[in-house]
Each structure stands twice: as structure tokens, then as C-alpha cells.
């Protein structure tokens, strides 16, 4: 018992206390223990349910927000320049082995510059020279060490690709001849090439001079 027993003011009797202790040895029935402990658990759970009522919608909102953010991020990563990227030569869109690069360049020299050569009929001989140079370069690329191109970042090859010229130096010397060259490209149906040259023209000469 507590210190109240030490207090002489309180009328306790040790003999009565001992006799009571001797007698009072009943214990709580087990079925009551189960009932009460289950009630306590149930109450704690329902409280948690009540307290966490706002958690479920918040979790849904957070999950949806996260999904949207991931989708946007992935779409931005996979498609950095959507308009221009599709129209670029295949060599610029994906990294490839040096041998593949060489073959593709050779193929390109056979296909695309053919149209350019058509446009620049007066410079046919120079175009032929350029084509042979490209072939030689492609051949030398095939023999180049494997690490040479594979080490180059994809962005570099992409820039190389867009820096390809469709109008030669004489055509781009003045805006009129450059524009003629662009119009010729458009007539030939090479709209992407024309667009690239138009952009270069806009950069080289101020926009007010554009038609």
C-alpha cells in the first residue's frame, strides 16, 4: 500500500487490511479481458481511420501528380527537338558503329546530294568533286578506329547533320541568289532542305529582307 498507511490521521487497521487481502483474491474473468481489449483495439483503429480520412485522397492526388510528372519528363527526354529531329538523316537520330556510319554516309552521298546536283547544274563538276571527296571520306571512316565515332557524342553528330549545306558558297554569297537556290529546292520538293537554308539565310541576313 501507499504512504497513506503511514499517516496516523487515517483510520486504517492492519489486521482488517490483512484479512481483506486474504479474502479478496478474485480475478477478472478472461472473457471480460477479451471483450475490453478488443474494444480498445477497435477504438484505436477507428480513431486512426478517422484521423487518416484525408490521407487517402491526398495519396491519390500525390500519386496522380507523380505519374503526370514522370510522363511529361519521359516525353521531354525522348523527344527533345520534335519538329526537326524527324526530318534529319537517320545517321543523326541514333548512334551507330563506325562501319555503319561510313556506309550510311556513302548511301547519303548517292541519294540526297543527287537532288542538290540537279539544282546546281552549273556547278555539276564541283558537286562531282564533292561527292568523290565524300566517298573517299566515307572509305577512310570505314577504316578508322572503332573508338573514333563511337566516342563522339550523339549531339555532335546531330549538329553535323544540320550543318549540311544544300546551297553552295556562290549561291549563298548574296541573299537573292540564296533565295533562288531555296526556291529551287522547294520546287524540287526538298522542303526540309529549303527550310534549313531559309533559316540560315535568316541568320545571315536580317529578316526584313525576307519576302
Amino acid at each position: 500500500m501507499s504512504d497513506k498507511r503511514m499517516n496516523s490521521d487515517e483510520p486504517g487497521d492492519p489486521r482488517v487490511s490483512a484479512a481483506y487481502r486474504e479474502m479478496a483474491d478474485e480475478r477478472t474473468p478472461e472473457h471480460l479481458d477479451h471483450v475490453i481489449l478488443n474494444a480498445a483495439r477497435g477504438a484505436a483503429k477507428s480513431r486512426w481511420r478517422k484521423a487518416g480520412a484525408w490521407l487517402r485522397p491526398a495519396a491519390w492526388v500525390a500519386t496522380i501528380g507523380l505519374c503526370v510528372a514522370i510522363v511529361v519528363e519521359i516525353s521531354l527526354l525522348s523527344d527533345p527537338e520534335p519538329a526537326e529531329f524527324d526530318s534529319l538523316p537517320p545517321s543523326a537520330t541514333k548512334p551507330s558503329s563506325p562501319a555503319d556510319d561510313g556506309a550510311k554516309r556513302l548511301e547519303k552521298t548517292r541519294a540526297e546530294p543527287r537532288a542538290v546536283q540537279e539544282i546546281q547544274k552549273p556547278d555539276r563538276s564541283r558537286a562531282a568533286e564533292a561527292a568523290s571527296e565524300l566517298r573517299q571520306q566515307a572509305d577512310s571512316d570505314e577504316q578508322a578506329p572503332a573508338s573514333f565515332l563511337s566516342d563522339a557524342p550523339a549531339t555532335m553528330r546531330f549538329e553535323e547533320a544540320i550543318s549540311e549545306r544544300y546551297c553552295d558558297e556562290t549561291a549563298t554569297a548574296d541573299p537573292d541568289s540564296w533565295l533562288e537556290c531555296i526556291l529551287e529546292l522547294e520546287r524540287q520538293g526538298l522542303h526540309e532542305a529549303a527550310r534549313l537554308e531559309r533559316e540560315r539565310l535568316a541568320l545571315a541576313f536580317p529578316p526584313p529582307e525576307l519576302p
Binding site: 479478496a24 478474485e26 480475478r27 477478472t28 471480460l32 479481458d33 475490453i36 481489449l37 480498445a40 483495439r41 484505436a44 480513431r47 486512426w48
Partner: peptide, 19 residues
């Protein structure tokens, strides 16, 4: 929300209260 704490409390007082 700590149910174990209640169990300790209950077991500490249940018999005396029942008597």
C-alpha cells in the same frame, strides 16, 4: 493510438477494479 499501452494499463488495474 498505442494499444499496447492500454493493455499494460488494463492489466495493472483490472483485478483491483473488478474486486
Amino acid at each position: 493510438g498505442d494499444v499496447a499501452a492500454f493493455e499494460i494499463l488494463y492489466r495493472r488495474h483490472k483485478d483491483a477494479l473488478f474486486r
